[in-house]
Design a protein around this nucleic acid. Structure first.
Length: 407
RNA sequence: CAGGGUGUGGCGCAGUUGGUAGCGCGCGGCGUUCGGGACGCCGAGGUCGUCGGUUCAAGUCCGAUCACCCUGACCA
């Protein structure tokens, strides 16, 4: 991408209404644009970052046999009335709208009901199971208070996976596979060292559910971890009874803040029963389908990564999620000519700062945008043998022969 | 939803006891610059969130309303 050709523009100061680090830097660096509280547009760089995150999740889910779909945001109330979840008393974050011909529709805050209803068309026998179906979809939640940049929005992007099984054992086994996939996903996202599977309230169907909490000072959840972080508990289950169950002592735990980037739930019959998702067993009995659901907040993850790695100069993306791996700057006639040639060969990997501005501004923007490697070519670098390559995260600089740049 | 705070050019801000708006960044032009957001000159751009009221006169006072931010509560 050529910076001279894009409409985005960096800002020296963050808008006053972006006080969270992620919102302020993503706005300043031209990744996002705010429509209103909790509602954001993703600009070219932001969209590329979102797509990188999505692809990592997609690859790991596909690797354990999941199938991707895309469901609708508009929802039929009848479906949700079957589970009692269209009621504003039961689920108080609905956005509801009206059909011009009369009647109410909802904007999906999650997709258990429509997913189950849809699968009724395709699941009729034990031979059809198990199934693992997911999507990346925009969710709408009428939060009382949107906050923290893109970390808690009213409209946000989520990956939601639903699994369908004939037995609890099969559900358990797949649940374990998802745990494995999630571990890989968070590692690849650069959050492996700071993200922990955390015990949280499981509602009425299980003692616990699992949340994936990334340790982050501005996270919304309070969590407790022991020395080696082998056991992490959300505050909501950090009770004497639960501690006794685990045979641990509260004084061995440290309190910190976490951002919930994912969660996984064993739903069992919670939705299959009220909506009537059944299958025929081998001996032709009709049974309800066991279910699990597994979420990752894609846009929130982007905010968490932005927040977690930022420094005083701006964003610092892990290479796997950066919109581009390289930020290319040419200085002087020779440098400029060389960079044009390099850009032509590696367009997909390069954010090319070909703007007619002074070098200092380009350096500042490369740092603000958080591109992992900055390549500078000038008379000076050519005289020392090639291009100067600077690592955004470490600040480490080295001269690399032009032929060795992309090997 | 409770408490606190803020709305003035694209962004950040100032505007004294009411007298119809000013600065920095950014933007356009010219020139000098060209490895750390350079400098000079010229210039464009706002009716002060919205509605109503007081007044000869309101960005400044009063009322209402909307939006936004922070803390908390909420989070299926």
């Amino acid at each position: 991408m050529r910076l001279s050709k894009t409409f985005i523009k960096t800002l020296r100061t963050a808008p006053k209404d972006e006080t969270a680090t992620n919102g302020a830097l993503l706005t300043r660096a031209g990744y996002i644009h705010k429509e209103m509280a909790g509602v954001y547009d993703y600009l070219p760089l932001g969209l590329l970052t979102i797509e990188k995150i999505k692809n990592i999740i997609r690859e790991e889910l596909n690797a354990i046999g999941c199938e991707e779909v895309l469901m609708s945001a508009l929802q039929n109330p009848e479906l949700w009335e079957a589970t009692g979840r269209f009621s504003d008393q039961e689920v108080d974050i609905w956005f509801k709208t009206e059909l011009s011909a009369g009647g109410v529709l909802g904007l999906a805050p999650t997709h258990e009901e429509p997913m189950v209803e849809m699968m009724k068309n395709y699941v009729s026998s034990y031979k059809d199971l198990p199934l693992y179906v997911y999507q990346f979809q925009t969710k709408f939640r009428n939060e009382l208070r949107a906050k923290s940049g893109i970390m808690r929005g009213r409209e946000f992007l989520m990956k939601d996976l639903y699994s369908f099984h004939t037995s609890e054992e099969d559900l358990d086994e797949f649940y374990g596979k998802v745990e494995g996939a999630y571990k890989k996903i968070f590692e690849r996202l650069g959050l492996g060292d700071s993200t922990y599977e955390t015990f949280a309230s499981g509602g009425i169907f299980a003692k616990f559910s699992h949340e994936y909490q990334t340790i982050l000072p501005v996270g919304e959840d309070t969590i407790y971890y022991n020395k080696d972080k082998s056991l992490v508990l959300n505050k909501e289950v950090f009770t004497p009874e639960v501690l006794a169950d685990f045979g641990v002592d509260a004084k061995d735990f440290t309190e910190t803040r976490g951002a919930e980037v994912g969660n996984i739930f064993k739903l069992k019959f919670k939705y299959s029963e009220p909506l009537g998702l059944k299958y025929a067993t081998e001996d032709n009995k009709s049974e309800f389908v066991y279910m699990g659901c597994y979420g990752i907040g894609v846009s929130r993850v982007m905010g968490v990564i932005a927040e977690k790695f930022a420094d005083d100069k701006g964003l610092v993306w892990p290479e796997a999620v950066a919109p581009f791996k390289y930020y290319l700057v040419g200085i002087g006639e020779d440098g400029t000519r060389k960079t044009e040639g390099i850009y032509a060969e590696h367009k997909d990997e390069i954010l090319f700062d070909d703007r007619d501005v002074r070098p200092g501004e380009k350096f500042a923007d490369s740092e603000l945008m958080g591109i992992p490697q900055r390549i500078v070519i000038s008379d000076k670098t050519l005289a020392s043998g090639g291009a100067e390559v600077t690592n955004r995260a470490t600040g480490e600089t080295k001269i690399v022969d032009l032929k060795e740049l992309f090997v």
